[in-house]
Amino acid sequence: MPDQTDRPIARAERTLLSLPATPSAVRRGRDHVRDTLRSWGLVPDDEPASAAALIASELLTNAVRHAGGPLVVCLDLDGDRLILEVHDTSPELPGARRGPLDTCAEDGRGLTLVDAYSHAHGAERTATGKRCWAVLTLPPGALPGAPRAAGYMDVVRWVAEPAGVALLAEAAEVRQAPAAG
C-alpha cells in the first residue's frame, strides 16, 4: 500500500490519497474525488461526478467502520471509464446484506448504492488487505479529449463479485447482439 499520508499524488490520469481510518477520512476522500474530477475537466455537479463522490463515501465509510488501518483512495481514468478504488488493511471482503432491506436501519445500504451507480464493482484481497473498487462509465464528451476505452471491460483487472460477473456477461451480450433495424 502506498505510504503517503494525506497527500495527493497526481500523475497523468491517476491519483492516490492516503488517509487515516477516521470518520473525517470519508469527507476528505469524497472532496479529493470531486477535486480530482474537476481538475480532469468533469463538472462536479454532473451525475458522473456526484455518483463517484457517493461511491467514494460508501466505500470509505465501510473501510472506516469495518477495516481500520491506513486507507488509500485511488482514482484512475481509462478512456471513458472512471475507476475508483479504496484500499484498507483488512482481508475481510464485504458482503451484501441478506434478506429484505430494513428501511429504518441506519446502515446497510452502501453496497446497494454502489451497485446502483456503478457499471461494475467488486473487492479482492491484496498483499496488505483488500481493494474495493467500482467502475463508472462516463457519458460521451464528459471529459474533453478522453478517448473511448474500447474493450476495456474485457481486460481482466479485478476479481468481480457474482453480481458484477453477471453484469459483465450481460454487457458482452448486448455488445454482440445485432443492431435492430
Rank of each mutant, 00 (worst) to 15 (best):
residue 136 L to G: 10
residue 105 A to M: 01
residue 164 G to Y: 00
residue 158 W to I: 02
residue 130 K to P: 10
residue 165 V to L: 11
residue 165 V to W: 05
residue 172 A to C: 08
residue 91 P to I: 00
residue 123 A to K: 09
residue 125 R to F: 05
residue 162 P to W: 02
residue 115 D to C: 06
residue 154 D to T: 03
residue 167 L to Y: 04
residue 96 A to I: 07
residue 101 L to R: 14
residue 154 D to I: 01
residue 172 A to S: 12
residue 107 D to P: 07
residue 133 W to Q: 03
residue 157 R to K: 13
residue 108 G to R: 01
residue 112 T to L: 13
residue 175 R to M: 03
residue 115 D to K: 04
residue 157 R to D: 07
residue 119 H to W: 05
residue 144 P to Q: 14
residue 99 G to E: 08
residue 129 G to Q: 00
residue 168 L to D: 09
residue 147 P to K: 03
residue 133 W to Y: 12
residue 121 H to N: 07
residue 168 L to T: 08
residue 154 D to M: 03
residue 133 W to P: 03
residue 108 G to E: 04
residue 135 V to D: 03
residue 141 G to M: 06
residue 106 E to D: 12
residue 91 P to Y: 00
residue 94 P to T: 02
residue 127 A to M: 08
residue 168 L to I: 13
residue 90 S to R: 09
residue 123 A to E: 09
residue 160 A to P: 13
residue 163 A to C: 13
residue 127 A to Q: 11
residue 168 L to C: 11
residue 108 G to K: 02
residue 126 T to H: 08
residue 117 Y to D: 01
residue 149 A to R: 08
residue 131 R to D: 14
residue 114 V to C: 01
residue 163 A to T: 12
residue 162 P to G: 03
residue 155 V to Y: 12
residue 144 P to L: 15
residue 124 E to F: 02
residue 124 E to V: 03
residue 160 A to K: 12
